[in-house]
């Protein structure tokens, strides 16, 4: 602290508390709503403190789902989201480690060309090429499958870049020593490079897990079979239903379930995640 100004410290706490309130308030209200019964929510102003139906509401939701919303039980949606998020995170890390290794540690024709093709994906978010990508996936028969949900989202340049930047900082002496001891490229990759990248892998994992879990448009397009619905896309149907029937408590419980896993991941792995995020994108 540069100087001691009590009023400034007070102002800081005040502003930060307002910020925290802004951030937490919507989530708190959603949680509160999920612990009441549907009727008490419609019959007046929403209460600010939790009710006593926490276990009952969540049990109904997880095992039976919400009647009339066209979705299955919510545990299945949670499972689908988990499979999708994990496949995207693991898949991305695997293919980007390999391609970054190839681009940094080898000299071969068309090296820069390959690099630029990968790089181009940065400019093509799924939202701008919705229809043609959908057609490709449909032609490959990948609609309503875990492969269709995850593989098209696996290739992205961000992870490749982070690993490339990191590999460039690994001292050449390590490579020389490994070569002198008779290690081939694969041995070097497996026994030296990957163990050295552990922190980066963990950071990318957090970012990609959240990216995968939070996908909305893509699952909306490639799933028509409700047994493949993910939780984030399933919410929209519930909200539409909740507007006409008093089922807001279940819709809000789904919302809480949809945001809980990624929030836990971010909070638990906070330090890694912040480091990874700020370094990847700069």
């Amino acid at each position: 602290m540069v100087e001691n100004r009590p009023w400034l410290t007070f102002l800081q706490h005040f502003v930060l508390l307002c910020g925290v309130a802004l951030v937490v308030f919507p989530i708190w209200i959603a949680f509160v709503a999920s612990t009441h019964d549907g009727r008490s929510l419609v019959s007046g102003v929403i209460p600010l403190l939790p009710g006593d139906l926490f276990f009952e509401n969540y049990r109904t939701l997880l095992s039976e789902g919400m009647a009339g919303s066209g979705g299955g039980p919510v545990w299945l949606m949670l499972f689908n989201s988990l499979v999708m998020a994990l496949s995207i995170a693991v898949g991305k890390i695997a293919i980007s480690l390999l391609s970054a290794f190839a681009v940094v540690y080898f000299r071969f024709p068309f090296r820069m060309f390959c690099f630029w093709i990968i790089f181009a994906t940065l400019m093509l978010p799924v939202e701008v090429r919705i229809l043609p990508t959908f057609e490709v996936v449909a032609n490959l028969g990948m609609l309503n499958s875990y492969a269709g949900l995850s593989i098209p989202l696996i290739a992205s340049a961000t992870a490749t870049f982070l690993f490339r930047q990191f590999f460039l900082t690994v001292p050449d002496e390590l490579t020389e020593a490994a070569r002198m001891d008779g290690a081939g490229p694969f041995r070097f990759f497996k026994d030296i490079l990957v163990p050295l990248s552990r922190t980066n892998i963990a950071a990318i994992f957090v970012i990609m897990f959240i990216y995968g879990w939070n996908q909305y448009l893509w699952p909306l397009l490639v799933t028509t079979d409700e047994s493949f619905y993910t939780i984030v896309m399933g919410i929209q149907r519930m909200v539409t239903v909740a507007d006409s029937y008093p089922r807001w408590h279940l819709a809000m419980a789904t919302t809480v379930l949809a945001l809980l896993p990624p929030v836990i991941v971010v909070v638990v792995m906070q330090r890694l995640f912040v480091k990874g995020l700020v370094e990847t994108e700069k």
Partner: peptide, 23 residues
């Protein structure tokens, strides 16, 4: 404060929309 302030990053845009839609 920081821990609480990073929470929205983990929330999907669609979920954020639904939270405010409800409010």
């Amino acid at each position: 404060y920081k821990t609480l302030l990073i929470i929205p990053y983990a929330v999907a845009p669609a979920v954020a929309g639904v939270l405010w839609y409800f409010l």
